[in-house]
Simulated assay, not measured.
Amino acid sequence: MQSLIIAFAMYSRIPMPRADWNDKNMRYAFCWFPVIGLVIGLVTGAVFYILTEWQVGSVFRGVCLTAVPLWITGGIHLDGFMDTTDARSSYGDREKKLMILKDSHVGAFAVIGCGIYMMLSVGAWSEIDADGIRIMIMAFVLERALSGLAAVNFKGARKDGMLTAFREPARKRMVTVVLVTEAIAVACVMCYLWLPGGVLCCIGALLMFSFYYKIAMKEFGGTTGDLAGWFLQNCELVMLFLTVCSKYLFASI
């Protein structure tokens, strides 16, 4: 339970009781990361059904659905997305990119990247339907299971930082088994809820996971907390777009 509290306290704005942030309590924190995704998914689904019942416009609904994950997480993953966008856009060497990740200032490319991301997200969420929202509720869980797997198994780009603080005390084998089990379970649920959309989203998530590994190792020499946020936001957008595409490609199934 201490690990659960620490995971929610770190990766969400949901009020949590006080917990001691020591190695013992942090060893299983990543196991609870997908549960945060489930909470986000359920709240997102509830907002969708409420706004649909109220018959609000699709654009307003898209804005609200885009805002829900950011409100619950406090934007911690979007911050990583922006920092990584800045670093990759510099086209500098590995050391320069890592230096940009640590810089607290916001660059022009981060703002541009965030603006484009928000527009794409609002547009895609405005197109979501009942079948799609059920898939996306589970997608929030899947992307965090994959992110946790990367955190404990990918090489770290540096020896300090928040991701390292969570990775070092983690029981790697046990955490990996739990996260793989969670990822497989939620993938099966997605396919059960809507086979075409579920399969397409799972494939997209795995491809994004592979791309994440390639970028992290090639450009940064390993992963960081900012890169983890970059992956999470991109994986979410990829699955969202694939869910919307499924709506038109497999409308009759």
Rank of each mutant, 00 (worst) to 15 (best):
W125Y: 03
G45Y: 03
F166R: 08
R134V: 12
S147E: 14
C235G: 12
D20L: 12
R27W: 08
K172M: 10
K218Y: 12
L242N: 05
S90Q: 02
I203C: 06
G37V: 10
F33R: 04
P196A: 00
V43I: 11
M138E: 12
P34D: 10
D83Y: 08
S12F: 05
A187C: 11
D103Q: 05
M26P: 09
V244P: 01
K247H: 10
R94M: 15
G37R: 02
D83F: 09
M136H: 02
G222A: 07
L42H: 02
T176R: 14
G123K: 02
V238A: 03
A151L: 05
A165I: 05
L163C: 03
Y117S: 02
V177I: 13
R61A: 00
F231K: 00
L163I: 05
L51D: 00
P69K: 06
T52K: 08
I137K: 02
S3C: 06
I36M: 07
M16K: 01
A110R: 07
V244L: 03
M26L: 13
L237Y: 04
P69H: 06
L207D: 03
F33C: 06
F30M: 08
T176E: 06
L78G: 01
I137S: 00
D86W: 09
W32D: 09
A165E: 09
P17D: 11
W194T: 03
C202Q: 05
